[in-house]
Design a binder for these strands. Structure first.
Lengths: 352, 352
DNA sequence: ACCGGCTGTCGAACCGGTTCGCGTGAAGTG
DNA sequence: CACTTCACGCGAACCGGTTCGACAGCCGGT
């Protein structure tokens, strides 16, 4: 069932059917209805490849996300889901591309074969060569996150610096003097992950300002790494009474480590960080945290990209978000020290 | 840069370039190298839309997942990630389609506009009209899950009946006599979700066989619903000493409810169910559960679909998986009853 | 020297849409 | 009634690949 078949049955030419479909030229009421009736009867829908070939637009956007290790974190999931929904609402489909590292076949296909009209980049690095690749083939892109030089880019980002600072201030205001920072895995930090770097920067700066003792750790994206990391924290500095984390996947492990060490949250130890609310509410006690507004960010990213596609010469725009800290139940005033001793720390463990 | 440009620069015809690219006809070494050099210099990649139009294959598969409510569970995330990776390994791209309910635009686009060569269906219902829609347009599909009549279908499924039975037997072997079942949300059960129905069936059957007292509950896919559900369980039957759940998103809330009620896991109360290992390991104590092999399932689904695409007349195949229960730390022998009383149950709450 | 077969390449048609320029017939105007 | 104007629909070209039939040239065999 192609457009010629419709034209034949309606007794008109193919171009007239096309104009009925697109509305780009007026068609008389009589012909339009005749054609429309045939279309409805046959349930005709135009072939996407042919249309894309003819008018140069695929009505598809690419979502590029290098996997952090072998699995995805809850936050990535939230972004993916919300981007897909926002795109669907604007009649765009979403093509998923894993990896996106150089020489990655899937990413190359997306770009070179022009399967998509534009791309949304996740998991940004401070120096992100994906932008150059996209620019070199003229594909518009919007980032979720921002590079080291975001001035003239299209992106929607989270102010990790400010959020980490806010977490430190919150803890310092509660009287905590020794605070640990649990970052994403070292491999990602080394790769230049934006959130890891900016969060670390904000944490370090605020800790210095408030004169609190601090240590920073990298931690694998899973529960057992979190547990090991916490053991290490208490081994390195038993007087630690609070931590800030960006690593939502390790959160369960951090809590387990605290429980094993006999530190009660929030009485003996406070935990906070940057985590989407639905994950913050999964742990007990519920996590006081800056809520990552994944839905809003996904929607904004799609909005920006579609705007850019519709107006190729529009000036660059971006959104920098800094959600407030939601007070839940995982932070409290610094106590006089640990209430009791749990199992003695016997030594540090690898923290991924 | 199109194929004609390459042909011109190499001094050959367009068809010869095409044959170099596809290898479908022999080309002499000299010409091949001449063409290949031009291709490499210009970094030429053939246009995906044009190719799809010409040979009728998009090299894209659709992943159809009706959202359970407004967000995705960790298990869905795992499937999506693993399907995308498995597809990428076979040089297929993945197009995501939310909803997939009737009259859904995105789903209709996938089918009618032939954006994909085939589809993988997630979140199966016992009677799933998506199959009929797909069949009516001749699109091959593979399901993750199985309908009420899976005999001649292509699918990879989890034997939820057997898994739920195994959970009950495990608990009964430990001496538990009063067991609750925490299912997916009622809305999904009513919609005919396969896992919810088969899990419930297996639970009910095994509970009857073992003569244990049981109650079954539906529970929203979030932590607060889980907490409310647990309060309700203990209100309805305070003698309950164990539960089985399919609802991974509610798990954190169930644990919180138990902690609030003063029930220690596993001393006073045992918890088990069907949950992917990486989520089972997030909670404390770690969940004894039948591990959903999401990676394997994603890979198998892609393998089946690609096989079906390559051999349109191949006989239907499927894989029914029943992973064993991984013993972790959330189940133990039934005690003599709750060790102490937590906050008194004051009444049931809505459980979503 | 002639013929048959085989290789390697070409040209043209085709996939299913979109878009542009043009022709036609009806309506409006002096 | 002749002439412009306009609305409407048609045909052809095009997007960028793939594929098939044909043909040229070379080889070896008799």
């Amino acid at each position: 069932m192609n457009i010629g078949e419709i034209a034949k049955r309606a007794g008109v030419s193919r171009s007239t059917v096309s104009y009925v479909l697109s509305g780009k030229r007026p068609v008389s009421d009589g012909t339009r209805q005749k054609i429309q009736r045939v279309i409805d009867e046959l349930g005709y829908q135009p072939n996407a490849s042919a249309r894309a070939l003819a008018n140069g637009r695929t009505n598809t956007i690419g979502l590029v996300f290098p996997p952090a290790g072998n699995h995805y974190t809850g936050m990535q999931l939230d972004f993916i889901g919300n981007v897909v929904e926002a795109a669907a609402a604007k009649d765009y489909d979403v093509l998923l591309s894993p990896s996106g590292m150089d020489s990655d076949r899937s990413f190359q296909r997306l770009l070179g074969e022009r399967r998509v009209d534009g791309a949304i980049l996740m998991e940004l690095r401070l120096q992100d060569d994906r932008f150059e690749h996209l620019n070199s083939v003229g594909l518009p892109a919007v980032a979720i996150g921002r590079t080291a030089h975001p001035e003239n880019g299209w992106w929607v980002g989270l102010d990790h610096t400010a959020l980490a600072e806010a977490c430190v201030h919150h803890l310092a205001d509660l009287g905590h003097r020794t605070i640990a920072f649990v970052n994403r895995p070292e491999q990602l930090l080394r790769a230049g992950y934006e959130s890891a770097h900016r969060g670390l920067e904000g944490f370090t700066k605020a800790a210095a300002e408030r004169g609190v003792t601090s240590r920073t750790y990298c931690c694998g994206d899973d529960a057992s790494s979190g547990q090991a990391c916490l053991e290490r924290i208490l081994y390195d500095e038993p007087a630690t009474t609070a931590l800030v984390t960006l690593n939502e996947a390790a959160l369960g492990g951090l809590y387990r480590g605290l429980a094993n060490a006999g530190r009660h949250v929030p009485r003996d130890f406070s935990v906070t960080g940057v985590v989407a609310s639905r994950w913050a509410e999964t742990v007990t006690p519920q996590l006081t945290a800056a809520d990552v507004p994944a839905e809003q960010m996904g929607r904004l990213a799609v909005d920006l990209l579609v705007e850019r596609l519709d107006h190729p010469d529009a000036p660059a725009r971006h959104h920098l978000l800094a959600p407030p800290i939601s007070l839940r139940a995982s932070t409290g005033p610094a106590g006089t020290g640990p209430a009791s001793t749990g199992p003695a720390s016997t030594g540090p463990a690898s923290t991924g």
